[in-house]
Design a protein around this nucleic acid. Structure first.
Length: 649
RNA sequence: GGAUCCAUAGCUCAGCACGGAUAGAGCGCCAGCCUUCUAAGCUGGAAGUCAAGGGUUCAAAUCCCUUUGGAUCCGCCA
C-alpha cells in the first residue's frame, strides 16, 4: 500500500470517526467542522480535538464528560490506522495512531515514491510566472540583493514540485538614467574588453563615472548658488561636494588607472550631465547607436550575473528588457487606455493616476486589506517632459506577463509595497480584475550590514560573489581539518557544495518579512541549523546504508517502538503537509526548518540506537528502512531550496 | 503627520494565517561523551513578566484596542 500523504490519511480517519460519533450521540445539533490539532506531546497521541470545549457551553455539560461520551461512541473498527481514542485532560479527545501499521505505511510509501515523496500535486495546476532577481545591470549583485534570487528560486522550485507550470523571469531595468551613466563611462573609455569578471568590471566603471559626474554637477550648482547669493544652497552643496570628494579619493586609491582614465575623458565634455540625459532620451527613442551602446554594457553585466547565478544553481526562462516595452507600442497603449478612463488627471503638465479613486469606486479597499481611511497616493505616469516612469512601464510589462500566465508572483523588496499596490490597482482600473487578483507581491525585507551603509552608487557593498568565495574557502578549511585524508579534488568538490549550500540556506531560512542582518558568522555557520548540518546528516545516513550493504528483507516495522523512532516516523509522515503549507503560503523557510528538524531528530536517533547492529535482524531491517526513508526525505527537502544532498562529506 | 511591516532567553531566530495541554531551537556559557554505523555530532545544566497595558474567550505568544520602541514607504528615482 502506498500513500502520498500518510499523516493526512490518519487525519481523515480520525475526522470521519469523530464525525460519525457526533452524528450518533448528538443528532440534534448542527455538525461542526472538525479540526484536529497536533498534540504537544507524543504521549497524548498524535491528533487531538478540542471540540468538547466549544460544545460544552452550548449543551451545558462538562467538557470532560462530553469527551468521554464521544469517545465511547467512536467505532474504530473501520479505521485501519487508529489504535485508540481517549478522553484526556479537561476535555480533549486524543487519537493514538497504530504505529506498527503507520510506520509500515509511511516508510514503504517513501521508499516507493522516492524523489517524488512529499510533493503532493495541486488539483488546479496553474501557469505561474515568478519574476525574481531583476538586479539593474550596473554593478555586481551584492549581498543585500542576493536574498531575492534565493527566495525567488526556492519559490519557483516548490511551486513546480506542486505541479504548477512555472516560468522564471528576469526583468532587466535598462531604461533610466543609471544605465546611461554607466554606458557613458564605458563609451568614454572606448568600450574596453573586461579584464576581470564582467559585472565587476562594469560596476567599477559605473561607480567612478557616477562619482565624477556628480562632482561636476555639484560644482556647477555651487557656482549657481554663489551667483544667486543663496547661502543655504551654498552650505548644502559644499557639504555634498566634500562627501563626494572623499568618495573620489577612495576610488582613486582603489582603481588608480581606471580613475585617471575616466577623469581625463570625462573632463573633455563641457557638460557630462547633459550628455547622459541626451543618451537616455536617445535610448528611449530607440536610436540605433544608443541602443547598441546601452545593450552592450548591459549584456556584459548580465553575463557576469549569469555566471554567479549558475554557481548557486539558479537559472531563468526569460530575460525581459524594459526597453522593449518602451520601443514597442505597449507602454503608449497602456497610457492611452488609462487616459480614457476616469482615473487619470493632469496637473501642471504631469499625468497622474488616481489610485484612491479607483479603490473607492470599485470598492477595493477591503479586498486589498486596506482600511477605509487609508488614502492611496496618486501615481505619476508621465513626466512634464513626456517621458514615462518606472511603474508606468511596469504596468505594460505586467499586462504582457498575463498573456503567458494565470498568476504572476513578483519577488520584490518590501520598500516597493506602495508601487506594487498602485500597479495592482491600475489593473483593476484597466478592467482586469482577475489579473489584479492573481498578481502577488512577494515582499521580503532587506539584508543589512551592521555599522555599514551599502550604496551601489558609491561602490560600498559586499558582492554576492565575495560571499560565495569566502563561504567556499571557509568550507575548504573545514573539510581539510575534518577529513585530511580526502583527495584534493574531493575536498574542493565538498567545499563547493557546502559553502554554496550554507549561503543559500542562510538567506532563505529567516522569515522573508523580517530583515536579515548580514554577518559572516550567520552565513558561514556550519553547525546545527545550517545547510552543512543537514548535508552532513544526509551523508551520515548514506554512510550507514553503504555499510549495511543490504536491502531490508523482512523489516519488523512493529519493532520500531522507541519514542525517537516514532517521532521520526511522524516527522516523515508529516513532510507532505509541510510541503503543501509552504507552497500555499509561499513560505520557503518552512522547508529549511523542516529539514533541520528532521536532521536533528535523526542525529539523536543515530547516537542512541544502533541501526546495523540492532538486537534482531527484523529490527535492523526496520531501522535500515527508516534510515533510507530519512535520507530520501532530507534530499527532497534540500532540493526544494536548491541545496545539494551529498552521499559523502 | 499618514501608511505598511515588526517586537518571543544575553545574541540569532521558530511558533502567530486557523486560539488549545508544561512557549521551542541554535549561538554563547557551565559539565560530560570518539578502541562501536561520519564528533560538521550527541547528552545534561543555567537562562523567558512572549515590548507594556487593557479587552474578547471555557482557553491568548497567537484575535481586537491603546501605548511605547524599531524598519520601510509616502519622488516628475528605480
Amino acid at each position: 500500500m502506498v500513500s502520498e500523504n500518510p499523516f493526512d490519511q490518519f487525519r481523515q480517519e480520525c475526522q470521519t470517526a469523530l464525525s460519525n460519533a457526533l452524528k450518533k450521540t448528538l443528532p440534534e445539533i448542527k455538525q461542526p467542522t472538525i479540526t484536529l490539532n497536533k498534540t504537544p506531546n507524543i504521549e497524548y497521541g498524535q491528533l487531538a480535538s478540542s471540540l468538547c470545549f466549544e460544545l460544552a457551553k452550548k449543551l451545558n455539560q462538562k467538557p470532560r464528560t462530553l469527551a468521554e461520551h464521544l469517545v465511547d461512541a467512536i467505532d474504530r473498527s473501520n479505521f485501519n490506522l487508529i489504535e485508540s481514542v481517549v478522553a484526556a485532560g479537561a476535555g480533549y479527545i486524543n487519537f493514538h495512531v497504530n504505529f506498527a501499521k503507520f510506520s509500515a505505511l509511511t516508510l514503504e510509501s517513501i521508499r516507493k515514491l522516492k524523489g517524488n515523496y512529499g510533493f503532493v500535486k495541486t488539483s488546479t495546476p496553474t501557469k505561474i510566472i515568478v519574476e525574481h532577481t531583476s538586479v539593474n545591470p550596473l554593478h555586481p549583485i551584492h549581498i543585500g540583493q542576493a536574498r531575492n534570487p534565493m527566495l525567488g528560486d526556492a519559490l519557483a522550485r516548490i511551486l513546480e514540485a506542486r505541479g504548477h507550470k512555472v516560468s522564471r523571469h528576469y526583468y532587466i531595468d535598462d531604461v533610466g538614467r543609471q544605465s546611461s551613466v554607466v554606458a557613458y563611462g564605458y563609451a568614454k573609455l572606448g568600450k574596453p574588453k573586461p579584464t576581470e569578471k564582467a559585472d565587476l568590471f562594469v560596476g567599477k566603471i559605473y561607480t567612478v563615472t557616477c562619482c565624477l559626474v556628480e562632482i561636476n554637477r555639484l560644482k556647477k550648482a555651487r557656482e549657481l548658488a554663489i551667483a544667486v547669493n543663496s547661502a543655504d544652497d551654498l552650505v548644502k552643496t559644499n557639504k555634498e561636494i566634500d562627501e563626494w570628494m572623499s568618495i573620489a579619493a577612495e576610488l582613486k586609491e582603489k582603481y588608480p588607472v581606471l580613475f585617471e582614465a575616466l577623469m581625463a575623458k570625462i573632463s573633455e565634455d563641457e557638460n557630462p550631465e547633459e550628455e547622459i540625459n541626451r543618451l537616455n532620451r536617445a535610448y528611449e527613442d530607440g536610436e540605433p547607436e544608443a541602443k547598441g551602446l546601452i545593450r552592450e554594457v548591459s549584456e556584459l553585466c548580465l553575463a557576469g550575473f549569469r555566471e554567479t547565478m549558475q554557481r548557486v544553481g539558479v537559472s531563468y526562462d526569460s530575460w525581459d528588457w524594459e526597453s522593449d516595452f518602451v520601443w514597442s507600442t505597449q507602454v503608449s497603449e497602456v497610457l492611452s487606455r488609462l487616459k480614457a478612463s476616469p482615473f487619470v488627471f493632469s496637473e501642471k503638465g504631469v499625468l497622474e493616476f488616481d489610485a484612491e479613486k479607483v479603490a473607492n469606486l470599485l470598492g477595493l479597499k477591503g479586498k486589498l486589506g486596506l482600511s477605509e481611511d487609508n488614502e492611496v497616493p496618486p501615481l505619476t505616469l508621465v513626466r512634464a517632459d513626456g517621458t514615462t516612469l518606472y511603474t508606468t512601464r511596469d504596468i505594460a510589462y505586467t499586462l504582457w506577463k498575463f498573456r503567458f500566465a494565470q498568476k504572476v508572483i513578483n519577488v520584490i523588496g518590501m520598500e516597493q509595497s506602495l508601487a506594487q499596490l498602485q500597479l495592482k490597482i491600475s489593473l483593476y482600473a484597466l478592467g482586469y480584475p482577475e489579473w489584479a487578483d492573481n498578481l502577488v507581491h512577494f515582499a521580503y525585507n532587506l539584508v543589512t550590514l551592521p555599522g555599514y551603509k551599502m550604496s551601489s552608487r558609491r561602490g560600498h557593498y559586499i558582492t554576492f560573489d565575495q560571499v560565495l568565495d569566502e563561504a567556499v574557502a571557509r568550507a575548504y578549511e573545514e573539510v581539510s581539518k575534518r577529513s585530511p585524508m580526502l583527495s584534493e579534488e574531493e575536498k574542493r568538490k565538498i567545499a563547493d557544495f557546502v559553502g554554496l549550500g550554507a549561503v543559500r540556506y542562510a538567506l532563505v531560512d529567516v522569515d522573508s518579512g523580517k530583515p536579515v542582518v548580514f554577518t559572516w558568522e550567520r552565513v558561514l555557520n556550519f553547525e546545527t541549523n545550517s545547510a552543512p548540518y543537514v548535508q552532513y546528516t544526509h551523508a551520515r545516513a548514506c554512510s550507514i546504508l553503504r555499510k549495511a550493504a543490504r536491502e531490508p528483507q523482512a523489516p519488523g516495522f512493529g519493532l520500531l517502538t522507541e519514542k525517537l523512532e516514532r517521532e521520526l516516523v511522524l516527522s516523515l509522515a508529516g513532510f507532505p503537509d509541510t510541503f503543501v503549507e509552504a507552497t500555499e503560503y509561499l513560505k520557503p523557510n518552512m522547508i529549511a526548518d523542516y529539514a533541520n528538524a528532521l536532521a536533528d531528530k535523526f542525529n539523536t536517533f543515530y547516537n542512541a540506537l544502533p541501526v546495523i547492529k540492532a538486537d534482531s535482524q527484523e529490527l535492523s531491517d526496520a531501522r535500515i528502512a527508516l534510515t533510507e526513508a530519512i535520507k530520501i526525505v532530507m534530499a527532497n527537502a534540500l532540493n526544494l531550496i536548491g541545496v545539494v544532498a551529498p552521499e559523502k562529506m
